[in-house]
Design a binder for these strands. Sequence first.
DNA 1: CACCTTATTGATCGCATGATCAATATATCG
DNA 2: CGATATATTGATCATGCGATCAATAAGGTG
Lengths: 209, 209
Amino acid sequence: MSTPVRTRAARKSPAERSAEIVEAARLVALEQGLTAVTLRAIAARAGVAPALVAHYQPSMDALVADTFAHIVAEELDELSGLLAALPGPTERLGTLLDTLLDGTRDDVTIVWVEAWALGRRNDALAASVRTQMDDWQALLRRIIEEGVDRAGFRAPDVDAAAWQILGMVDGLNAQALVRWGDASERGSLIHGAVEGMLGLQHGALAVPD
Amino acid sequence: MSTPVRTRAARKSPAERSAEIVEAARLVALEQGLTAVTLRAIAARAGVAPALVAHYQPSMDALVADTFAHIVAEELDELSGLLAALPGPTERLGTLLDTLLDGTRDDVTIVWVEAWALGRRNDALAASVRTQMDDWQALLRRIIEEGVDRAGFRAPDVDAAAWQILGMVDGLNAQALVRWGDASERGSLIHGAVEGMLGLQHGALAVPD
DNA sequence: CACCTTATTGATCGCATGATCAATATATCG
DNA sequence: CGATATATTGATCATGCGATCAATAAGGTG
């Protein structure tokens, strides 16, 4: 790997440059994980001196935490939009499971797994992880609540059920990261599991083409 | 933290010293995670010069991988022994879920989570992770197979069901690591989920006192 | 008791990390 | 067109990591 020469970066407005650095961090995190979000790596990616990254960020811990939050919140927004277009809670829940387990978001899964590990040594990141988990759980909770009201879901403790489903999804994705190829069957059985949890009949969560 | 003076370590047989270093690594990993298994930390814990750790280990990557395997295999052995005393697959599966999710093994969970993350940059560790996951999945598979034969489990794909349950357990434990206190309700709903997955009737997996 | 094998160590290297600061160069304003 | 505010940088520091090697010292053996 040769050292690419870096010409002096063009002078830009703080807002623009800061946004470029944030974006560089996002890309590096998605491509190489949160561990690779280092002062020098982000600087190189943004085409800028390391000191400039430090200039625009209070600390690398903070940049890592913000990058995590950015990536995860973005995915939540996308999925929320997708689900909003569906007619009811049953369709929303089935689609949510299928989408999260379709194996096309391994880059985000890596970010999650590394955040769990790094959060033990980065307080800001740990706080971000809790916030994002709460937000995801809230999405699930709303779907389940609506399901209880309108679609025959049986959930004595909606909060616990939402946490449970979230944990299952996260675990299956993390596991798929390590296992050999067969990512396809990742979601093959979770429908049955969630149906059992919520008192639905077998096949209730199947999503029609 | 003062720098504790270290007197020259007593001369011991290679087998004994090597075992002490392995044990030091195990303790450090359980107390502070795999990330803390560094040359200097293990040396300090074992009361020995850093160079001696390097002398007895081919590399730190290898020590981290072995430490992970040691800890996880030990837990598997313990649980296997516990389950062997139970009368049938239903009791074994219920007890397995309750035991793994009782919240008393967070130190091992941290080791798992860090292994997933570190495995991306430590090939030996990644191989150990795959091996240990396979071993855990095999335990679950045997229980489910027996359940299909003798206890009315319905599992068209026993392999997939075993992976699924393993992923769910790992995910719930990893999640509990981050969430606020309430570790107790961790396993409250997984019985229903697994019952749904395996076609068992509600409450089938409940473990009598 | 003396010798010799070898367990153990201190010193050191190379590398990567985050952070700081004076110096430099550039865009914009008067 | 010149002056000024400030975006950008190179240099440098302190820290922690894994690894290597000649030097040291302790235990077992003859």
